[in-house]
């Protein structure tokens, strides 16, 4: 059986053929994925954004997730070409121009994990951590969690995940899933300034969500993707341009009732999900932070992290 290799070490023709055949197996965090795409933009995006992730070009095992990037119709293979992500189950998906294939791929992968993973409690959140524990960042899209997570990575924190906070129901530990960090709009330049351009993919312009670029996970983030951590700090950032930075501690019950609606599968998991979530919240301190720029949010979060021993 073929061994896993770093994706960046796979020659382009071999990678493209494997994707075309639907045989690319990617192992990252708690999920193995089978990927299929006859699409040079997806191949190039993977080579860039996922270059340090282990893959096999011949399917060696049964996978958790299967995502196919395909044309929504025969017609759209040739005329005003479009792509759509097929996560293996019926779900409304917006066809995108073929130049946005990378975005379609990321959305398809997100859907597959968000809607069909029932062994972990899944939240819309970003998570970073160090050897002492994790910081769980819960915010709506545009709330600044990806920017904050990227900034904390520069401060030495491991990237656990950007779009997902994944909670192990058996021990209430957070599970790393270090896919690329999705940056939108102004945050692209902000993150580029403090990480350097080498860590970002080219910008996808004029997407349904505006401009998007991805901040690659570091090799160390991927190598440590099997190391789970307990949550020590839960933050709910609220960005208001120019706002004075404020942190307000939340009651644990309030934190829990805020987190439930941000979960994509809590309603499916029953008592196990409730008990895991209550344990996570009980072991952490929770804050709502209001801020007007990334420097302020960083300062607040660093202070709060120090307060809980991170």
């Amino acid at each position: 059986m073929e061994h896993f290799r770093r994706l960046g070490d796979v020659p382009y023709p071999e990678l493209a053929q494997s994707l075309k055949d639907g045989c690319l197996e990617m192992s990252l965090g708690p999920f193995s994925k089978r990927l299929k795409a006859n699409n040079s933009q997806v191949t190039e995006f993977l080579q860039d954004a996922y270059r340090d992730v282990p893959v096999r070009t011949k399917l060696g095992d049964i996978t958790d997730v299967a995502v196919t990037i395909k044309s929504p119709s025969w017609f759209r293979q040739y005329v005003r070409r479009q792509v759509v992500a097929d996560p293996g189950f019926i779900v409304p998906a917006v066809p995108l121009p073929v130049r946005l294939s990378a975005l379609s791929f990321e959305m398809g992968l997100n859907l597959a994990v968000a809607l069909k993973c029932c062994r972990l409690v899944s939240f819309h959140a970003a998570v970073v951590g160090n050897e002492k524990g994790a910081i769980f960042i819960s915010a709506h899209s545009g709330g600044g969690k990806s920017t904050l997570a990227s900034a904390l990575m520069v401060e030495g924190y491991r990237l656990f995940s950007d779009e997902f906070g994944l909670l192990d129901m058996s021990n209430s530990l957070l599970v790393p899933y270090p896919r690329p960090v999705s940056l939108k709009g102004d945050s692209i330049n902000i993150v580029r300034d403090f990480t350097g351009a080498d860590w970002l993919t080219p910008v996808l312009s004029d997407t349904p969500k505006g401009d998007i670029a991805y901040r690659r996970a570091r090799p160390s983030d991927i190598e440590e993707a099997d190391k789970k951590l307990s949550s020590k700090l839960i933050v709910f950032p609220v960005f208001t341009k120019g706002a004075r930075p404020v942190a307000k501690e939340l009651a644990k019950s309030e934190a829990l009732m805020r987190l439930i609606p941000s979960s994509t599968n809590y309603h499916l998991l029953g008592q196990g999900g409730f008990e895991a979530l209550t344990a996570m919240v009980a072991g952490a301190r929770s804050y709502e932070i209001q801020y007007g720029n990334t420097d302020d949010s960083m300062k607040i979060v660093k202070d709060l992290a120090a307060g809980v021993g991170l």
Partner: peptide
């Protein structure tokens, strides 16, 4: 009911 008490609030899951 599964009940977890946190800071005088009874978080309750109805099975």
């Amino acid at each position: 009911l599964v009940i977890r008490v946190m800071e005088d609030v009874n978080l309750t899951f109805d099975t």
